[in-house]
Simulated scan of single mutants.
Amino acid sequence: MNTELFEAMDHLANEKGIDRDVLYEALNDALISAYKKNFNSKTNVRVELDTDHNTMKVFSRRVVVDEVEDDDLEINLDDAKAIDPSYEEEDVVEQEVTPRDFGRIAAQAAKQVVTQRVREAERGVIYNDFVDRLDDIIIGTVQRVDNRYLYIHLGKVEGKLPINEVMPGESYQVHDRIKVYVTKVDNTSKGPQVYVSRTHPGLLKRLFEIEVPEIYEGIVDIMSVSREAGDRSKISVHADDPEIDPVGSCVGQRGQRVQTVVDELNGEKIDIVHYSEDPVVYISNALSPSKVIDVLVDEEEHATTVIVPDDQLSLAIGKKGQNARLAARLTGWKIDIKSESEANDDGVLDESEDNVASEDIELDDEQ
């Protein structure tokens, strides 16, 4: 019976991909519980599992005291010394108390407890697998849809895609395959709960990391991403090596790399711009495709006033302010855009007319 029990444990470990130590810890707890229940014992006991010889032994544990108050938990010093003269007070005396038919009783009593631990261990394995996939892209299949979520089959677990994190214009049916970004993994009593998104900026970032070898290899860095999913996004990139063109690397030959990302995002427009530590240059780049005359920086307020040609004002601001909004998110700076005429009327240009020409040349070089 013992051999069958140990073989069953090994089989479970192999089949479920669970650490044997976890299973044997569960078995140990189950055997202690089984002994106390079946033999009406209040004694503290220890179970010794010998996986090499497929044996189980039960040992009672009693503390050596001068005066015994509880026979189940304590043993008199004189009685302890009769077992071994080296015992002193507060030592623990162990004596084997393994019942003759303990293997059969233990197997029956342990089944439920071990099954529960196996279930918990399986959940732990799945949870760890998906925690490792946090901030990553995974492909799943739409299982069902309600008014709050799309439920995505992700293998051993079901992912939840909130309806408001499906890209505008996208529609999915049951059995459709879908590429999603893992935003959150919770370890609940009912098992791992995985939340995914199609609108998260991280999805755009990971798509570029997958598509552009230079990003994957660390030659080109993605510095920031701002996104209005399904419509337009901006991404800033940088390379330490001046010989490397980070924007060109992301665009790819004939635009193939960026087009692959655009296709995955159903035509979402993507602006790829050079990152710069100089806010004047960075903000000018971020407002692409509009041209910029000057950028006035207020360090204290972490704000800027951007001056653009009159005919570029609507382009700089974008439809419903989108271009300016995305540029502000990308750079982390507040951006107030003024036309050249408006800046002249307000006297804004007068404050920096001495350096406008030189800055304009530098910006043109960067862009």
Rank of each mutant, 00 (worst) to 15 (best):
V220I: 01
I219Y: 07
K184T: 13
G155S: 08
G191A: 06
H200R: 09
L204G: 07
G140P: 14
R206Q: 03
H238T: 11
H200N: 15
I235P: 09
E211P: 12
I219S: 03
E209W: 06
V174W: 00
Y149L: 09
D241F: 08
S189R: 09
D186Q: 12
K234W: 09
R232S: 03
K179V: 04
N147M: 10
M223H: 10
K156D: 14
G191D: 02
I139S: 14
A229P: 10
D146W: 12
Q173C: 02
L203Y: 01
P192G: 10
I138Y: 14
I138H: 14
L204A: 02
P162I: 00
F208T: 08
I222W: 05
D136K: 15
I219R: 00
L207H: 06
I235C: 03
R232Q: 07
L154Y: 14
K205Y: 05
V237E: 06
G155M: 10
L161R: 11
P213T: 05
I178M: 03
P201G: 03
H238Q: 14
D146S: 01
R198H: 07
D146Y: 11
R177H: 13
I222M: 02
I137G: 04
Y151V: 05
A239N: 12
N164C: 04
D186C: 09
D146K: 09
K160T: 00
D231G: 02
V220M: 08
S197A: 01
V174T: 13
H153G: 14
R144A: 07
V225W: 01
V174G: 04
N147E: 15
K190R: 15
S189G: 13
M167C: 03
I137R: 10
I138L: 05
P201S: 03
E165V: 10
F208Q: 11
V182H: 12
G191C: 02
D240E: 15
V237S: 00
V196D: 08
S171G: 01
V157I: 12
D136C: 05
V166E: 12
Y181G: 01
E170W: 07
Q193M: 13
R206I: 08
K156E: 13
V157E: 08
Q143L: 13
L204M: 01
